[in-house]
Design a protein around this nucleic acid. Sequence first.
DNA 1: ATGAAAGCGCTAACAC
DNA 2: GTGTTAGCGCTTTCAT
Lengths: 362, 362
Amino acid sequence: MPDSPTGRRQPSGSASDSLRPRRDARSMPSLEEVAHRAGVSRSAASRALNNAPHVSPLKREAILKAAEELGYVPNATARALATNKVGSVVLVVPNEEPGFFADPFFSQIVVGIATALEKSDLVLTLMLASSGEGSDRLKRLLRSRSADGVMVLATRKDDPLNDIIESTDLPVVFCGRTLGREPRWYVDADNRGGARLAAEHLLGAGRRRIASIVGPMDSQASVARYQGFVDAVAAVGLPTDWIEEADFTYDDGARAMTTLLDRHPDLDAVFVGSDNMAAAALRVLKARERSVPDDVMVVGFDDLAVAQQAEPSLTTVSQPIRSLGHEMALMLMRVIDGESPSPIILPTHLVVRESAPSAERG
Amino acid sequence: MPDSPTGRRQPSGSASDSLRPRRDARSMPSLEEVAHRAGVSRSAASRALNNAPHVSPLKREAILKAAEELGYVPNATARALATNKVGSVVLVVPNEEPGFFADPFFSQIVVGIATALEKSDLVLTLMLASSGEGSDRLKRLLRSRSADGVMVLATRKDDPLNDIIESTDLPVVFCGRTLGREPRWYVDADNRGGARLAAEHLLGAGRRRIASIVGPMDSQASVARYQGFVDAVAAVGLPTDWIEEADFTYDDGARAMTTLLDRHPDLDAVFVGSDNMAAAALRVLKARERSVPDDVMVVGFDDLAVAQQAEPSLTTVSQPIRSLGHEMALMLMRVIDGESPSPIILPTHLVVRESAPSAERG
DNA sequence: ATGAAAGCGCTAACAC
DNA sequence: GTGTTAGCGCTTTCAT
């Protein structure tokens, strides 16, 4: 057998080899080839291509030129092995979350992360951690050193993911928090403050019989939003127990609104823990022939597209989802670089629309 | 300096080293250690752990046990370098798409892919290919051999991405197609057939003045949907040019509906190229005091959550977004394995709801 | 400033 | 069936 170009022993070619779209080293120049073409050693080439010192300007020039001409791109795997840096970070998404981390949330976070990563040369790998089998994969992924760091979207209190994540020695940054845990690094939205603004807005509009549809109480964000609600409502001595829990989905939001209406027919405002559920609430209120905002004011949370498109449009607490992703990625990069950044709480603010205008109408 | 445990020359420790959360080989057992503990050679250990032949049951047992006890997980990077298989596939998402590949679409595709990948040990890496700088990254990513294959969400006709993708020698599978290109491997929904069903439904309900809001005509899916519309409408000799193009966003959908209404005040049905735009159309029709479905029937496309939640709920063409992702990933895995699967067109079907019921009312 | 050479942790060809 | 060994393509130390 003739020597292979790379000098490696070749497997005896099987019949099937020719069938495969073999994308071999053929067209992938190696450092060695660049060095050879530039007439220098591999180490020199390596140094030049990494902007390292100890290369004469002349050679550096030649090497860069050679690399350019050959279309050289370093083999990421080999580099990773040599440097013990993988060049990728993983985003862990607790799967099967009914609605909280549903569509718009997820995509926006990803976009935020991607824009942050764009400047680095880190690549984003995604891990949808469904329960059961999925967590085994995650465990292996983390132990197999195939990422330099981990980002995690907020988990529920008893998610088995929590322990898996906690047991890795990779840097981990959270988006949101988990009840009963205080991660070292996280970014979060000011859920409590935002919810307080919402409730104060309702109070400011003169409403005094305020109910709330809260998200699942094993979610830290839901609890924080409820606390914000309590902050405002308790401060003026009103009851804080006109509440109903729902699982962040549209359907369960509708159910909760119905329940509240049955229990407190005289309610004149409702603060809802997510826009999706708020949209459902609007629907129920309409069916029950309560006019919004005249009879009942509604404030949501998130400021998704649905808030603008709802009828009437939804007053809601806006949280900067993309920024959350962006900041999370930036923070992770800093941690990977050995820094120890402080947690970040991003501000939320009220967006006033038709479902709860600023001044009482009529 | 004392020998390092791994025998590698150590860099002289700098001051900053101690600051960093060094996650060193310390707790990461290597194959060598497993082999040693089991009292066999590295190759034996490797064979056993990969279920390869030529290992006596006894040793195999011992090796597996040792690995278990040490919590051994192979170093993915090293394995990748040795096998020339990376163990990951990349999903390329054309970024800045106004609405077509917006929120729900993107997440659902990803979920479909993730479930398909779960059984393999491939990992998903994400590449949001914004224009400009982003495409450079993509080029490098593809050339640096950091993935075993590529999945691409349908691009627009003149997207610079097209050329980049075409120039890679990695296996590529598309979701959807691109105008003027016929990829070797792709999955797609039966857009044309679904649109035809929609139009036929309208005709079957007795409507004869049918308009259509079509998506951007540089998107293959939009064109296919328009063709399906034409298939049905032209067959009965009705005009097929009551159409207005919109960019898949809610706002532009609203604008298009307004335009159509101005141009053809007597229209009695409209087929809309996406649910988002259809929701906007409903809104406009309501504002214009056209009753849906009595005055104007509306059929959408996609069957997103918004279709059920709209008021009236939206008759729409359902396309299996998750399956699209799932099949795309399965197909890619087959291509990576050297097979050459045929393209797949997944069926679409009509979901009849209030905005265009089956029988004329009244 | 430069190049030779020793690895990174794993797989696979080869000889026994 | 088993161990030895030569790489995968890159980085980095060390000697020059």
